[in-house]
Amino acid sequence: MNSPHSSRHRRVGDSPLVKWLLISIAVATAVALLIVPLIVIFFEALGAGWGTLADNLSDQYTLHAIGLTLFVAALTVPLNLIFGTALAWLVTRFRFPGRKLLITLIDIPFAVSPVVAGLLYLLLYGRNGWVGSWLTDYDMQLMFSWPGIVMVTVFVTCPFVARELIPLMQQQGSEEEEAGVVLGASGWRIFRTITLPNIKWALIYGVVLTNARAVGEFGAVSVVSGNIRGQTNTLPLHVELLYQDYNIVGAFASASLLAGIAVFTLAVKGFVEWRQTRTLNRLQTEEAA
């Protein structure tokens, strides 16, 4: 009679009206803003059949854009993997003045609009920029070529790995590493056998997010690339060029590739999260048993 489940003791927000209202709003929003556009992309891309899609994708400029995008991602991801891990290690394992400031600074790429970031790089490293004019004397051009694209992409994606690692490493503390060093292990051995296994899944998650963003970055890249077809055009820029050329089908074909990468990213992310929960659950049930 005094059961907490009796109908008299309803929890806050438990009324059926509120519940279904909230659910419908959430579902409607998700369908209208997320699911329908995603379906439309694939629908449009395949509107003229698989053959046309293949033709559009095997166009030489599209192939070049795909190649450049993958090349940029292939450089960006390892750079940020190393940078992010080193940074997370630094701010969670050492105490030094300015540490809090550094943690805040990591977020700058999130706070600054990518276009602004692109412009800053152009000002600094462009032909007439502070560093750029000096580099020009040595015949080095960064802007309007692939190094510039890699630079802004690294900038835009640099928080992802560090942001994933810092809370986890803070929570795990450094006791295990201290235990390792007391037991005589070298720094490399500690990193390989103790730290790395503990942060493995967060690291993979960070890499997946970095990769997704590196492949899809538009704003910053569009400022520094110069949009030279077949030379400095990445896939997102290519989509825009095709669209402006009134090649709607071609634009959607390339867009479907990007969307495909996004869906794949989500799938990997889901899997990683599922792995983590499963390991946790298994440990807990075994502990209880």
Binding site: E175, E176, A179, G180, V182, G184, T193, I194
Partner: peptide, 24 residues
Amino acid sequence: FVFQHYALFRHMTVAQNIAFGLDS
């Protein structure tokens, strides 16, 4: 050195934990 919160290596078995110093 024995830590207050044990500081066992959570990704290693009990035997691997004990062997760590010798392996190092």
